[in-house]
Amino acid sequence: MNIFRLAGDMMHLFSIIVLLLKINATRSCRGVSLKTQELYAIVFVCRYLDLFTSFISLYNTTMKLIFLLSTFTIIYWMRFHKVIRVTYDREQDTFRYQFLILPCFLLALVLNNEFSAMEVLWTFSIYLEAVAILPQLVLLQRTNNIDNLTGNYVFLLGSYRALYILNWIYRFMTEPNYRQYLVWISGIVQTIVYIDFFYYYIRSWRNNEKLSLPA
């Protein structure tokens, strides 16, 4: 565990805390994409299948449980909570995510480290996470007046994988036989997807103005 990996995990944890706070404190999920939350639920389920079979560390298991529970809580709130569900932008959050799920699954069938169910699903989760934020970014472009907490959520979520890239570079240099080409490429693609958002987020922060993404 190096500082980049820990910082990345903390950014990821903070992004989820910010989102939970935003929805719970404002009793509203306006501007939040349910599609992205559901894609992340698929990512975590497919990635953490070994949650009960292989124990790595208390930290590892705890974080996996937090990610799973928080994502399902958000989905539950957005779908069933009597006050929160009415604030969901159903008409705006229309990204057809089957066009993300299917290609990622097919790619995982073809491009993986081992052709076994667990490994293909794990690889699928790596590819799917790279594009899981797209429905949320599309929704932000359609939502005028993005509230700060939602903007912060996306920024923290994007910065977590960017920090993971530094972690991979560090491990590549210090651990002789550490190779994760598929994860590295997917993580770089994931971070590139955020670059556009990062630019507008940092500019709005510098100019101290409301964040807005061009349509």
């Binding site: 990821h12 480290n113 794990w122 994760q180």
Partner: peptide
């Protein structure tokens, strides 16, 4: 061990 090591990230 290699396998476990490979999946130590979240």
């Amino acid at each position: 061990a290699e396998e476990k090591e490979a999946k130590d990230e979240l």
